[in-house]
Design a protein around this nucleic acid. Structure first.
Length: 343
RNA sequence: GCCGAGGUAGCUCAGUUGGCAGAGCACAGCCCUGAAAAGGCUGGUGUCGACAGUUCGAUUCUGUCCCUCGGCA
């Protein structure tokens, strides 16, 4: 049980546990939350949707009884959700926890959300459905490179950064330009000099690639045994269509296609396994280049409780060091060297 | 044993009218700030089953052998 002192709270400390899907974050997270006497704040762009429980691998009832989990089930599947909304909701939870003298513990695999929380978002307007719809329509009507050329006119720097095929990001850049009148590259540049307000300690969980892939495949089989097809059918019956952001998530996308007759069930399983492996790989690339992560290698013999104890010890040193730190823009921790291996 | 089909990238296969071969999947690396479980980029030397023959040149033609899968015995 750990309670923050005032000289801790001023630094706005937080611990994050990140890593690819199926690496074992949730289990370690629960034990770590228990060791620290705190709660789990999910950083997961899919667990925010109500009624989508199986393929998002939401914490079990037992886990939620053991430790409160927040930032889950925030919106219905047809509601908009994004990194900005996540950041706002998460900041509220952080302040609440500081008020209770608890150390916030963020657990999740959505790199952008973790980054948005720790480093903040740039000062760009949130997405606007009308502007976006118009841009998407333009992309459909004109030839392939049209929007990219449009972007090159108003924000050549951003256009150079984006591949002409990357329509999603090109549309976002144009959207920002239209809504704010400022080039996105400019907004980004300004944000880079912003001073972070939190003092994060980030643990990155990794394991052998083959072992990770095996766990992914086993988990997908479990999803199907646990009724993923039925859950997806229910969501579709409730009117949440295949094109919505929520239904495009892993699991629901493949099963909806199977239910629509695009391919058979085995193919849906195969694709979900494949797409999840690809996703895990993208997560690894993202986190690998995130600065100041303390890497923690786990394997099939790793006991979550023991690992949580070990991490809790590191967290205590981190807090002790933090207390000595002059109070100003909290920068990265000094624990990063070497990494940790726990058998 | 005989007849047929086939042996080409980790897998499934395409192809070369003879000029050292290419797709999908798999796999690997990367980008990313309000759609992020989304979206995008890049990466192919592999005894073309083995040996011999024909040829300037064989994975491609011919012969023998080996292996796999059918069918008949």
């Amino acid at each position: 049980m750990l309670r923050l002192a005032e000289h801790h709270v001023v630094h706005r400390p937080l611990v994050a546990l990140v890593g690819p899907t199926a690496v074992g974050k949730s289990e370690v997270g629960v034990h770590l939350a228990q060791a620290l006497g705190t709660e789990v704040l999910a950083a997961d762009s899919r667990q925010v949707y109500q009624g989508m429980d199986i393929a998002t691998d939401k914490p079990t009832a037992e886990q939620r009884r053991a430790v409160p989990h927040r930032l889950i089930d925030l919106v219905a599947p047809d509601q908009r959700f994004n990194a900005g909304m996540y950041r706002e909701a998460a900041l509220r939870e952080l302040e609440r926890l500081y008020g209770e003298r608890k150390l916030p513990l963020v657990v999740g695999g959505t790199g952008l959300y973790v980054r948005a929380l720790i480093r903040g978002l740039c000062d760009a307007p949130p997405s606007d459905p009308a502007v976006r719809a118009e841009l998407i329509d333009q992309a459909r009507r004109y030839q392939k490179g049209f929007l990219h050329q449009e972007l090159a006119k108003v924000d050549p720097e951003q256009a150079r950064l984006l591949h002409p095929n990357d329509e999603v990001k090109i549309i976002r850049a144009l959207e920002v330009q239209r809504l704010s009148g400022r080039p996105l590259s400019d907004v980004h540049r300004r944000h880079r000099s912003a001073v972070p307000v939190h003092s994060p300690l980030i643990f990155g969980l990794i394991r052998d690639r083959q072992s990770l892939y095996t766990r992914i495949e086993q988990r997908v089989d479990t999803f199907f045994m646990n009724g993923l097809v039925e859950e997806t059918a229910t969501l579709l019956a409730q009117g949440y269509d295949r094109e919505s952001a929520a239904m495009k998530g892993l699991g629901y996308r493949q099963v909806a296609a199977f239910l629509a007759g695009d391919y058979d069930r085995d193919e849906a399983v195969r694709r979900l396994k494949r797409d999840t492996r690809h996703f895990a790989k993208r997560q690894l690339t993202w986190f690998r280049h995130e600065p100041a992560i303390v890497w923690v290698t786990v394997n099939d013999e790793t006991r979550s409780e023991r690992l949580a104890e070990k991490l809790a010890t590191l967290i205590e040193s981190f807090l002790a060091e933090l207390a000595d730190r002059p109070m100003q823009g909290a920068d990265a921790v000094s624990l990063e060297a070497g990494g940790v291996t726990v058998g």
